[in-house]
Design a protein around this nucleic acid. Sequence first.
DNA 1: CGTCGAGTTGGCCCTTGGGCCAATAGGTAC
DNA 2: GTACCTATTGGCCCAAGGGCCAACTCGACG
Lengths: 205, 205
Amino acid sequence: MTDKFTVYLVDDDPGVLKALSRLLRAKGHDVKPYSSPQVFLEEHDVGVPGCAVLDVSMPGLDGLEIQRVLTVANGYHRPVVFVTGKSDIPTSVRAMKAGAIDFLTKPIKDKDLFEAVSRAEARDAESRRLHSELESMQAKVGTLTPREREVLTHVVAGRLNKQIAGDLGTVEKTIKVHRSRMMEKLGIRTVADLVRMAEKLNLSR
Amino acid sequence: MTDKFTVYLVDDDPGVLKALSRLLRAKGHDVKPYSSPQVFLEEHDVGVPGCAVLDVSMPGLDGLEIQRVLTVANGYHRPVVFVTGKSDIPTSVRAMKAGAIDFLTKPIKDKDLFEAVSRAEARDAESRRLHSELESMQAKVGTLTPREREVLTHVVAGRLNKQIAGDLGTVEKTIKVHRSRMMEKLGIRTVADLVRMAEKLNLSR
DNA sequence: CGTCGAGTTGGCCCTTGGGCCAATAGGTAC
DNA sequence: GTACCTATTGGCCCAAGGGCCAACTCGACG
């Protein structure tokens, strides 16, 4: 149903690795199989849209460890689906609390795996969309001078130019100029849009 | 550490019920023990700040069923902590996916239960705060006339009075009046606040 | 039929926002 | 030192927001 979505598959059992790879490839996914968690982490690229399907218990690095590492990144969370042959409830609960998409026990039903990967794909797409939106906004805010940024926060707070001038120890005219340049740089025309942007970036506080 | 926080405790085992009750009461919580899921659901009051601690497997209504019922409400989700003597991974995963705070296996460590209830309390408080905030805002929006509401959406969209007038087939003066009355009724003074309110209420679309 | 709320509109006037042009001052980079 | 960026300020003028008072229409309610 989809393509250009990469599934990072990590399982120390070559048989499982092969079987799941075939299954997911048949579904149209781009699969990258790893029998070693370490190698996976080295080659893993957060820039690629995709999800991780991890065996819970592996020698060296177990699935939960990997999940933690993947989560640390920069706010972006690589969606993780766990598969396991032998595990326990506390482990599954910990995984889910940490944000796992699903926690499947072997024997794994194809349908369950597909659904999990599908949800992972949706979440990944959404989080990428959000993330890139925030990035582009932050990039624009980054081009603002310190003064312009101050004015921005005051405008978002709903203060009048005159009041902002008072707060910043200058005159209204100066604020108008900063304000105008600020809006220009942000590529925004209305205060409404400015407020929405500021809300998303948490610039209100 | 806290009080006036109610723990609805539901377990068909009288012994467990008694033990957990004592434990939670000692911690300062107001505990309402039920050995019957049905009775619990009948007496349950979403208006009371608290959480539910449910046994997963019970005759009649199992824990997951109860969780589903508690979730249906009106957008408010009663935080649920599961306790179980005998369960399996798929069940725990389903519970966590459905938003459970935690899924504890017996023998339950006091510390785990306390932490779970504590997190449930935090979540409950937060969701109540959010909910009441939304309610009061919606109540105010409810006092608006249809026309005022239309104007609201246009203002939030960043449109000028003149443009709004064009869209609504009237003149700028009329929009000014609606706009003024609208702000007055909402108890809001700045466009910035209006936008933030609209965002929270999803009035932008 | 009279009252009332909702929707309209006009006029008047003041405050704000914002664009354009010009100019000054301090600091930094080449 | 010259060029450039950032911050400032002034003047001029026009557009937009918004308060106050008054008035009109229409449909619903008694």
